[in-house]
Design a protein around this nucleic acid. Structure first.
Lengths: 225, 225
DNA sequence: CGGTCGGGCGTGACACCGTCACAGACTTGC
DNA sequence: GCAAGTCTGTGACGGTGTCACGCCCGACCG
């Protein structure tokens, strides 16, 4: 039952693995809040199975999906908090039933000092997240909501029809529900999708893909030119 | 002339300091491009004097100031590149005459492995940047351009009148020049600022501060309510 | 079976924003 | 003083965020 052996931490030295294996994984139901803005970091969380979404919430209540943590990954927000005494500014919620291990602060810092492979892992994860955040800034700052929505719908449609309400989609791409409603309606009129309550069937994948790829900066202009 | 002694790296062990001191600082004129999107990271850059701004450029050519590197700090983009083999997605330019030291990849990785204080420094810097990026996402995603502009103008006005063109201000807050023009004009009509070509005098600091603090999410609504 | 309630959805109004196009004003260099 | 380049103002227009409102559907209940 050693969880370490099947995780990304399997490459560590035997002694370190043994220490980690003494930690008991947590089993959390879907939609559990793991931390909220203002909480202090307790430890380094590694997701073993399930999934965790990390959200940013604006003053007006609008939300934006920062990133999704999949099994094997950990949460940057944790890392930040442990390294720089910072406080969470985002909220993390499980998306499904999730098992995760929390490496306590002291053990985490000890491993960072003593284990080169662990350092590589943590640094790499951190750097990856940073690069994700950069792309996020880019898309939010320079891309139209319609393009972000198209990209999101495409991503969600990988496994059959998209099961999501407009409110959920709006939060995921950081826009308002009304915008989702109007865009979906426009796509449906063009025959790109079929919409029902809580579900979207993608019909013309290529059309949505074009939209998602479009810089989004000057679609208005490109229509004219 | 040992630059290390006067830098943030002064706390390292003597042997490491000596190794670092063998590196020759670079002197760069203002407005020099240090790296561009697509470049591979060469080393870990530490700014000794002057300043470096890091910009994101959208497909439409619009720009957004990601962060400013001040003396003593280093550039995350470098760190990312060194740790995760990533390439730059942003552009860095000196703002004034700048002295900086580039720690080559090998030496950087060696220090990371061997020196706990160096690790603390690098991790801390990285975590700080991450937190800056989070705030940036938040402001770009949830705050109106007018509020971001107010905040920026206030920040720049700390040392007397703001010397900047509308194009520069627009890039710094990630909006279009025309928006800057219209907002400044509106503020001027309310008596909050006085504008000249390339210069802005802040008159009513409190008014701008209110604007900058406003969530920006629902100012339209608050005017009505 | 009708009624109520709540969540999901559509839509009009309106202000803000990004883009394009263009014109006037100022600076600089000759 | 003139020309070129830069900085700035402005109108038009479509996309976006917010508010307000009403409809539809499923669930639950008497």
């Amino acid at each position: 039952m050693t969880w370490v052996a099947t995780s990304a931490l399997a490459g560590l030295q035997a002694a370190d693995c043994a220490r980690l294996d003494r930690l008991a994984p947590l089993a959390l139901p879907a939609d559990t809040v793991i931390f909220r803005p203002g909480d202090a970091a307790q430890g380094y969380a590694v997701v073993l199975s399930g999934g965790v979404d990390v959200w940013l919430t604006g003053a007006s209540g609008r939300e934006l999906l920062l990133y999704s943590v999949v099994p094997g990954q950990s949460c940057v927000q944790n890392t930040m908090g442990l390294m720089a005494e910072a406080v969470y500014t985002a909220e993390a919620r499980t998306t499904t039933e999730t098992r995760l291990v929390v490496i306590p602060r002291a053990l985490f810092l000890g491993l960072l000092d003593g284990s080169a492979p662990f350092r590589t892992l943590v640094f790499g994860a951190f750097a990856d997240r940073m690069s994700t955040m950069l792309r996020l800034v880019e898309s939010v700052a320079f891309t139209r909501a319609e393009c972000r929505l198209a990209a999101r719908v495409l991503a969600l449609s990988a496994a059959g029809p998209v099961i999501a309400t407009q409110v959920e989609l709006a939060a995921q791409v950081g826009t308002a529900r009304e915008v989702v409603s109007r865009r979906l309606d426009a796509w449906a009129r063009k025959g790109w999708v079929r919409t029902q309550r809580g579900q979207i069937d993608v019909i013309d994948r290529a059309a949505l893909d074009d939209l998602a790829r479009a810089d989004g900066g000057n679609l208005a202009g490109s229509g004219v030119a």
